[in-house]
Structures are given as structure tokens and as C-alpha cells.
Nucleic acid binder design. Structure first.
Length: 565
DNA sequence: GCGGATCAC
DNA sequence: TATGGTGATCCGC
């Protein structure tokens, strides 16, 4: 069933690629590509002239964030292998490491700690732009000016895209310094996989690959074709990528940028109307509470659901709502016509928002010139001249007491409670090292497993494939990263139960194999529905399949078109 | 403007 | 290589 979905998507993609290739052939037929290349080269010169190397942008990213927060709340976990959140990964990990402690997640905690860290980081740039609860961007140009530092002392890269790619390069816990120099940057981008570029996902990667573009450097090689297929690929975006040019405007998320608010739930497939309505009601209730606490109202309600097999669809109406009863009612209205269905996800989303907090008062959008001015200042009411120069930063919570519900994108359990430990400038003693705050507390838990025979197979072993880092929130395993190869021993593969005489490395290789697609397929075949030898069969299948398929297209997006409106 | 799809964290 | 939840954007009607 899931595989079917995969197959369909795969087929769609294949067709799409075929269309692209056909288009390409038609477009290039009898065309003088050299001429086009010259033309594109002129475009490149224009873009190059737009390059701005004047800003120093840092991208920060906290390692194994969820796991480290859990550690903070329960120090006895230190040194023990544990994972956060359920899922296939945890499931497999538990097999590999039976003493693995499975924790459930505590989003409120993560949000809380995240706020603390962000508050500290804002001392380096009050414009901090969060990209989730554990990462974000800072423009530290004013900071390093003030402290007479050069980009070399602290800098990462001249724009957000590069900063992110660089922070990815030496993770965890490392920085990569990219010289602020056009040629260096272009060389750097040259053999970087296009997939690393924010905005290029699996689908776009495939589509680009079909016309020969695998690295950012390939964009230049194939510029003529990309020019001819601008509509499909977005030439400008790709050229900027090739050049390593991107936005360097770091600014906090503002309420008025919000476009929608919603809630959804996933569950094991349901087909009874009552069950579905229960879920719908639950979602409606949650949405109401979210809209209430964050102060939004909307005109369009969209129902979203996902079938067993294929990805869901959505519909909408034109009402004006924010109350649970209305949400639920509209939801039902939208659901009924679809009825006999079986779903595994249901959700409601409201768009065309109206900001109930857009207080006429002072929504004040301040613009930060040469910064320095922490968010405080400006609003320091004229009324009382502060004599207490000392703690002149009630800033953080004072400011927009009601506006502080900005939540990190992708997060929703907001909470303010920013204790602001900053007291003063903070700059004094510490340099930028603290930019990896939590990394400190973690230092890789020493792995002194209680007397187990097998030293923990390093959490899901070597990334045998692309060193692709990839997030690992849900299942952050703060285990040891020991790779000590032990002398040959006997192990039982946790996946297939085969007995192996090998060391850790060999075991890991075997497990890799076990998880590989072919093995999965085989397992699938041997385990008939009624009688699954290992329940892992199903899950694992899904797991492996996902990695290998899927795709579609659509890059043109200008990395980030900030703009409100 | 809608519904579907892709992407990101 | 996951999963799940939230949100944005873009494309083709």
C-alpha cells in the first residue's frame, strides 16, 4: 500500500523527467548553444556585480538538541544511551542496543531552552532569525566592528545560504571559514552537490540530474540548456547558487508574515465516520486554542486528510472563524462529501488571517541600522529618565509584551519566559565561542555501558552513504560515538537474526546490508501478512524505500523572498 | 482562488 | 535513510 504510493510517485516523476528531456531536445534543436552561453555569461556578470561581501553572517545549529535538553532535565541519563521520540529509527536502535532508553519528547522543554539560548545569542545580533528551535542566523557585522574583530576571527560566510552550507560542513561542533572572496566562493560551490542548496529537495535534485546538473558547478556547464528551460528550472536562482550569492538580510520573523495557522493529527488508518469526527473535533479544539492564544482569526478553512495510500487533498470555504465549533462544523462540511474514505491523517488549517493583536499601539517595526542598539533602547519611554543605567535591558520581555508570541517557525508550543541572563552587554568576557552553547553541556556522553557484552554499536553506525548529515531530532541518540573495532566475536543480527562471526565493523556492514532495499524486499516476500516473522519487516521497508525514490520539480524560488504583503 | 505538490526544520 | 507537525510557496488549472 505504501509501496504503491511510492510507485505512483516514482512513475509520476519518471514521466515528468521524460517530459523535461523532451522539452530540452525540442528547445535545443538547431540552436547555437555557444551563443546562448555568451548571453548567459553576461547575465552572470550582472549577478556578480550584485554580490555583497560586506556582511558577516553566522549560521548556528545546536547538536542533538532534543537529546541535550532531555539530559538537562535528567542528568542521570548522562553516559547512557537514549533516544527521544518514537519512530522507526528508535525501533531499530532499540534492537541494536537493547538497553537503549526510549524517552518521549517534551516540546515545551525544547521551546523553553531554545528561548534561553536565543536570548543569549541576540546579544550578538538582536535581529536573530530563527529557523526552527535549534538553529538560526545572525548578522554579526556590527558586533565584530564594535569589537575590532575581523571576519577571520569569527566569520562564517557572507550570506545565509553559504553560512548554512558551511556550518553543515564540519558539523557537529565545527565551523568552516569561507574566505570572503568571489573566486574562493565560486570554487567552493563548484563541486558542492546541488542537493545541499536550501530549496533543492529530492525531487528537484532528480530533475536537475536528468539534464546533467549534479553540482552547483554543473549549472555553469549547462547554462545554455538551463537558459532555454528557464521556466522549468529557474535560471536566475540557479546562477545565483552557482555563484554563491544569496540573501544576507537577517531579520526576525514578524507576525505579519504569517499566512496560515493549522493543526493536524496522524493515526493508524481509520474509516469509521465517528472515529474520524472525533479526530476532527480534537483537531478543531486544538486549533481554536492555538488561534486564541496567538490572536488570529481567519476567513478560509481548509480540511486536509491523507489516505492510506496517497497523499491527501484539501478544500476550503469562505467563512470567518476562530472558534472550535465553527472549525469543526466547517470541517465536517468538507469531510462529508469525501466520505467513504479511510484516512491516517486529518487536519484543519486557516488562512486569510486577520491579526487580532495588530494593535494600533506600537507594532513598531524598528529598523536596525548599525545595530548596537539592542532591542531595548528605542522604546525606553521618555517619561522617566532612567537613572538605573545598570539594568537597562528590560528589553526582551518589556518590548512587545503581546507580540512576543512569535514562535519559532515550525514550533507551536510557545512560551515566553525568556529569562534574560544578559544583564549587560555580555560582549565583554566571552567571544563567540558561546555560539554553541549546548554543545558544551554535551561533550559526547562517555559511553560506559553497564556491563553489556557488545559495546554499543555506534548509534545507527556509519553513515555509509553520503555523509549527508540530516537532522536527527526525533531520534537523536546521544550515545557514544565509539568506533573501536573489537576483535572478531559472535553477534546476532538484530534485524535478520542471523548469527555472525565478526567484529563491530563487520556487524555494522551486515546491518547496512540488512537494511538495504533488496534485503527488505526479500523480507517482505517471506513475511506474508498474516505471519510476519519480524514485525520490523514492514517498517523497515518503508524506511528503505523512502530513501531511494520520489521526486518532482520546481526550483525557481529566490531562496527567500522576504517581503510582506 | 483552489487543490496538489514540494520543501524545510 | 525516519517521523510528525507546522508552515510557506509554486504550479496548473
Amino acid at each position: 500500500m505504501i509501496a504503491q504510493n511510492e510507485k505512483k510517485k516514482d512513475k509520476d516523476l519518471t514521466e515528468r523527467i521524460a517530459r523535461i528531456l523532451k522539452l530540452r531536445d525540442e528547445a535545443t534543436e538547431g540552436v547555437d548553444l555557444t551563443k546562448i552561453e555568451h548571453h548567459v555569461d553576461k547575465l552572470i556578470i550582472d549577478l556578480e556585480n550584485e554580490r555583497d561581501l560586506s556582511q558577516v553572517i553566522v549560521h548556528f545549529d545546536m547538536d542533538a538538541f532534543f537529546a541535550n535538553v532531555e539530559l538537562l532535565h535528567n542528568p542521570t541519563l548522562k553516559g547512557k544511551p537514549f533516544s527521544v521520540g518514537g519512530g522507526v529509527i528508535s525501533f531499530i536502535a532499540k534492537k541494536l542496543c537493547p538497553e537503549l532508553i526510549l524517552l518521549r519528547s517534551h516540546y515545551e522543554w525544547y521551546n523553553e531552552e531554545s528561548n534561553k539560548v536565543f536570548t543569549i545569542l541576540r546579544r550578538y545580533d538582536p535581529r536573530l532569525s530563527a529557523a526552527g528551535c535549534d538553529e538560526g542566523y545572525l548578522n554579526i557585522t556590527p558586533y565584530i566592528q564594535k569589537h575590532n574583530l575581523t571576519p577571520d576571527d569569527a566569520g562564517i560566510a557572507p550570506n545565509m545560504m553559504l553560512a548554512k552550507i558551511c556550518s553543515d560542513k564540519n558539523k557537529p561542533n565545527g565551523q568552516y571559514h569561507l574566505a570572503f572572496d568571489s573566486k574562493t566562493i565560486i570554487d567552493f560551490m563548484g563541486d558542492l552537490s546541488i542537493r545541499k542548496v536550501p530549496g533543492i529537495g529530492r525531487v528537484n535534485e532528480r530533475l536537475l540530474e536528468s539534464v546533467g546538473v549534479k553540482t552547483c558547478g554543473d549549472v555553469h556547464t549547462h547554462r545554455a540548456v538551463l537558459y532555454l528551460m528557464d521556466k522549468q528550472f529557474g535560471l536566475r536562482f540557479l546562477l545565483r547558487t552557482y555563484l554563491g550569492i544569496a540573501s544576507n538580510e537577517v531579520k526576525p520573523y514578524e507576525r505579519n508574515e504569517r499566512k496560515s495557522i493549522g493543526a493536524e493529527r496522524t493515526f493508524s488508518p481509520l474509516s469509521s465516520t465517528k472515529d474520524m469526527l472525533d479526530k476532527l473535533e480534537e483537531v478543531a479544539a486544538e486549533l481554536e486554542s492555538d488561534m486564541e492564544s496567538s490572536g488570529w482569526m481567519g476567513r478560509t478553512v481548509t480540511l486536509k486528510f491523507k489516505l492510506d495510500t496517497f497523499q491527501g487533498r484539501a478544500k476550503s470555504l469562505n467563512h470567518w472563524v476562530n472558534k472550535k465549533e465553527e472549525l469543526f462544523a466547517v470541517g465536517k462540511e468538507l469531510l462529508f462529501p469525501e466520505l467513504p474514505i479511510s484516512i491516517r491523517l486529518i487536519g484543519l488549517r486557516v488562512t486569510k488571517l486577520k491579526d487580532l493583536k495588530a494593535s494600533t499601539s506600537e507594532g513598531i517595526k524598528r529598523f536596525f541600522g548599525p545595530a548596537q542598539q539592542a532591542t531595548s533602547g528605542s522604546k525606553r519611554k521618555a517619561s522617566d529618565i532612567d537613572e538605573d543605567g545598570a539594568d537597562d535591558d528590560a528589553s526582551v520581555d518589556q518590548e512587545e509584551h503581546d507580540n512576543d508570541d512569535d514562535v519559532m517557525p515550525g514550533f507551536h508550543e510557545q512560551d515566553e519566559a525568556d529569562i534574560d541572563p544578559s544583564q549587560h552587554d555580555a560582549d565583554d568576557d566571552e567571544e563567540l565561542q558561546i555560539i554553541q552553547p549546548l554543545a558544551h553541556t554535551r561533550k559526547r556522553p562517555p559511553n560506559s555501558v553497564p556491563g553489556t557484552s557488545i559495546s554499543h554499536p555506534p548509534a545507527l553506525r556509519s553513515r555509509s552513504k553520503s555523509a549527508g548529515p540530516s537532522r536527527s531530532h526525533g531520534a537523536a541518540i546521544a550515545g557514544p560515538s565509539t568506533t573501536t573495532s573489537t576483535p572478531p566475536e559472535t553477534h546476532t543480527c538484530p534485524i535478520c537474526n542471523e548469527i555472525l562471526t565478526t567484529n563491530n565493523t563487520g556487524l555494522n556492514e551486515h546491518i547496512d546490508y540488512c537494511l538495504s532495499r533488496d534485503a527488505i524486499k526479500q523480507a517482505q516476500g517471506t513475511s506474508t501478512k498474516s505471519n510476519r516473522v519480524l514485525s520490523s519487516g514492514d517498517t523497515t521497508k518503508e524506511y528503505a524505500m523512502n530513501g531511494l525514490k520520489r521526486l518532482k520539480l520546481r526550483p525557481d524560488t529566490p531562496v527567500k523572498s522576504k517581503r510582506k504583503g
